[in-house]
Amino acid sequence: MKKKLTIGTRGSALALWQARYVASVIEERDPAIQVELKIIKTRGDKILDAPLALIGGKGLFTKEIEDALLERSVDLAVHSMKDVPTELPDGLRIAAVMEREDPRDVFISANGQDLEKLPQGSRIGTSSLRRKAFLLNRFPGLDIISIRGNVDTRLRKIETEHLAGIILAAAGVLRLGFQQRITSFLDTGFMIPAIGQGALAIETRMNDPEVESVVRSLNHADTELCVRIERAFLLRMGGGCQVPMAAHCTKKDGAVHVNAAVVHPDGSPLLKETFSGKVENGSIGVELADTLIQRGADAILKTVLSDDWEPGPAMDIV
């Protein structure tokens, strides 16, 4: 008899692709394991008529799946890392971070015209306050339209909403096989990716060594370190995935390279910090956050979050 493991996942085409991918890797590495999927609808999936930034609350795309983990109706959960709150429920942990797909954002044009050449007033669709803020910083004449839905729904909205184009995460577009629709990949110096973008997080219960031993072998050490740095930055900033801030880390030749920024939703001011060097944990993420706070990022965040905004704990995570 094969041992069965059940993955909790959202039901979108992208979420299912990601869960099936993880299942295939587990089964390939251990043929004695059979992996099943359990589709769970999250609050973020149910509310489709409002921008994510206005819905509020953390764990919009993870809470119900985490509840299933705690209730033991699933054995592990597969999330897009950028959807995972920095603070997890008691009893749960991120057991593995898989190797990152392309972390960049992409522009998909209605007629093949490049983003740099769009006329003033062109309508660009995005669900992300971060993307909106970076776009307006560089192209203040654009008209940014909020769109929600899965990847293929947003692609259809180019026509139905009369958009000049949309901005999406490259990872989802590539995973679903829509690469032929990409007009351009956006440089990370201009459009800094969301924290964790392109990485898959595998969440398990604590003190569940049998499941953890299976999952931990899927971990990619360099991606895990980079994501840890990015999430330490986010935690210190006291924000969630719908706040106009970003941090992106890469590792090469033993050193990490980090770009981090906080930007006003209207595009200005934009505060940016960078770091290059050797580190072993996420502490540099905290340091970058503290530097930006000292430069005035707190005033930007208070306009987005609330007047009583305070930095989060200065602790390492993941």
Rank of each mutant, 00 (worst) to 15 (best):
G121S: 11
I182Q: 02
L115H: 00
I158N: 00
S128V: 08
G121M: 08
G149V: 06
G112K: 06
I192V: 14
I124C: 07
A110E: 00
D105K: 12
S128R: 03
G149L: 08
G177L: 07
A96K: 10
H162W: 07
V106H: 03
N150V: 05
R104E: 09
K82G: 00
P89K: 15
T126V: 00
E101D: 15
I192K: 06
A164S: 11
L129Y: 08
V97S: 02
A133M: 03
D152H: 08
Q180P: 01
L163R: 10
I108E: 01
I166Y: 01
G177R: 05
F185P: 02
Q120C: 12
I147D: 02
G196E: 07
L163Y: 13
M81W: 00
M191P: 02
I108M: 00
V74W: 02
D143F: 09
R181I: 00
F185W: 10
D75T: 10
I94R: 05
L186V: 05
P119H: 11
P103A: 14
Q120H: 13
I167P: 03
I166T: 05
D75P: 07
L174I: 15
P193T: 06
L136G: 05
R123I: 07
A194Y: 01
I144W: 03
G172L: 04
R181Y: 09
A133H: 01
R123G: 04
V78Y: 05
M191C: 07
I167G: 07
R104S: 14
S127Y: 11
S109M: 08
L135W: 10
H162K: 10
E87M: 11
G196N: 05
S109K: 06
I144T: 13
M191A: 09
F139K: 10
A171L: 04
D143C: 10
K157G: 02
G165C: 02
I195T: 08
A170D: 08
S122T: 11
I195E: 04
T153H: 12
L186I: 11
A194I: 03
A96H: 04
I192Q: 04
R175T: 07
T183A: 03
A194N: 14
D90N: 15
V106A: 00
R130I: 06
R131F: 02
E161D: 13
K117M: 10
V74C: 13
F139I: 01
L174S: 12
Q197M: 12
G172V: 01
P85R: 06
G196K: 01
R130M: 11
T86Y: 10
I166R: 00
G189H: 13
L142M: 13
R138W: 09
F134N: 03
T86K: 04
N137Y: 09
V74R: 03
L115I: 06
Q120F: 08
L174M: 06
M81L: 13
D114I: 09
F134I: 04
M191D: 04
I167Q: 09
Q197W: 01
A169L: 02
K157Q: 15
P89I: 06
M81A: 14
K82D: 15
V106W: 03
I144G: 03
V97P: 03
E101T: 13
E99R: 15
I145C: 09
V84Y: 10
A77K: 04
T160W: 12
D75Q: 10
T153R: 14
G121F: 07
